[in-house]
Each structure stands twice: as C-alpha cells, then as structure tokens.
C-alpha cells in the first residue's frame, strides 16, 4: 500500500467514525452518553480552524516573501503586505490589551474598516456593468428578466414609494413570494440533494 492510499484510507476511517458518532448522538440512540465525545469533536473543529487560519497567514507570508526575494512583478505590493502584516502582528502582540488596545482599535477604524468598505463599494460598478450587458430585451428571456428587475428597482425606490400605485407593489410582492420563491425552494432542495451526494461521495472516498 503506497503512502497516498494509506492516507486516503485513514482519512476515510476518521470521516466515517465522525459521521457515525454524530448521527447516533443526533438521533439520541444512546441518550446523551455520546454528547461529551461529539462536543470534543466539535471543539477540535474550532482548534483546527484556528490552526488553519495560522497556516494561511504563514502561507501568505511565505509566498510574498518569495515574490520579494525573486523581484517578481508586483514585488513592491508584496513588500507592502509584509510590512503591514509585521506592524499589525507586533502591535497586537506587544500592546497590553492585545486586540482591544488603542493602536489596534485605531488600525481597525482607520485602515481595516474603510479598506474593506471601499472594496465592497466597487460592487455597485460591477452590478451596473452586469446590468448594462445582460438586462436587455433582445436576449433570450431578457424581456422577462428586464421587467422583473425594473419592477423590483422601482418598487424599492424610496422616492417612488409615495406615488407608486398599490397594484405595482402588489405585483412585485406576488412575483417575489410566488414564482421567485417557488424557484428558490427548488434551488434550496436541489442544493440540499447535491450536498447529500457530495457528502456521500466524500464518505466513500470518491469526492
């Protein structure tokens, strides 16, 4: 048995054991006697998550360190990332209150929060570009899509609320709650079935 097959077999056994344990616990086959074991398993998940997060940070540092060392395209951006990483790490470690120390709060309020918000705000332009390209009546089914989008946009426009006929709003709500919801329930059901199949494939080692 080669090393890869052994690793696959081992991980398959672990997955199967966890699956059986948690299923038995959820079904309360043995009352609550399995509860401490499943609680321990879930706690390990959190530990594993923390470890993965650390590993991700180390990986990012490693990759960008190599970029700087090799002087590849965009090495200056990599250097900026490394410098900011070091500043944040050292500040968090050295400050007496850790994450709740004033320098970290300042970094959060003035660097992290505005940076993340600015990046997310670009979504509006992506949305506009997508609307420009695809909300067109000459595309197959585009007319229906266009009518739906226009109805939703207009009925959610605050300025239109006082003057919009009640029938338009009622139509929008009907569209949202009847055909759209039927389709979404189909999607949810389909996604759940797909998740079951993917889970089964993983459990039997075919994922």
């Amino acid at each position: 048995m080669n090393r890869l097959a052994f690793a696959r077999g081992l991980s398959l056994i672990v997955i199967l054991a966890c699956f059986v344990l948690i299923t038995l616990d959820r079904a309360a086959v043995f009352g609550t006697s399995l509860r401490p074991t499943t609680t321990l398993l879930y706690s390990w998940t959190i530990l594993l998550g923390a470890f993965v997060l650390t590993l991700g940070a180390v990986n990012v540092v490693w990759v960008h360190l190599r970029h700087v060392q090799a002087g590849r395209t965009g090495w200056l951006d990599s250097l900026a990332l490394l410098v900011i990483f070091c500043i944040t790490l050292v500040t968090g470690l050295v400050a007496p209150n850790g994450m709740m120390s004033p320098p970290m709060e300042w970094l959060f309020d003035n660097v992290i929060a505005p940076g993340q918000a600015a990046l997310f705000a670009v979504t509006f332009f992506f949305l506009a570009a997508a609307a420009y390209r695809y909300l067109r009546f000459d595309r197959p089914g585009g007319g229906w899509l266009l009518i739906g989008a226009l109805l939703m946009l207009i009925s959610q426009l605050p300025a239109a609320a006082p003057v919009l006929p009640a029938e338009v709003v009622a139509t929008t709500v009907w569209l949202l709650e009847t055909p759209a919801m039927a389709a979404l329930r189909g999607v949810l059901l389909g996604a759940a079935l797909a998740a079951i199949f993917v889970g089964l494939r993983t459990i039997v080692g075919r994922g």
Binding site: F124, L127, A128, A131, Y132, R133, L135, R136, F137, D138, R139, L146, A149, L150, L153, I154, Q156, L157, A159
Partner: peptide
C-alpha cells in the same frame, strides 16, 4: 444611485434598439 442604475438599463436597451440588436 437607483435612478442611475435605471438609467444604465434604459441606455443599454436604447443602444440595442439603435444598434440593430448586435448583442444577441
């Protein structure tokens, strides 16, 4: 913002009308 988005959609469809449905 929403009126601008509505304008973009209208412009897009107007372009299709004037451009002979080249985007199909």
């Amino acid at each position: 913002g929403q009126i601008a988005l509505l304008g973009v959609i209208l412009l897009s469809n107007l372009a299709v009308l004037l451009g002979g449905r080249r985007e199909s």
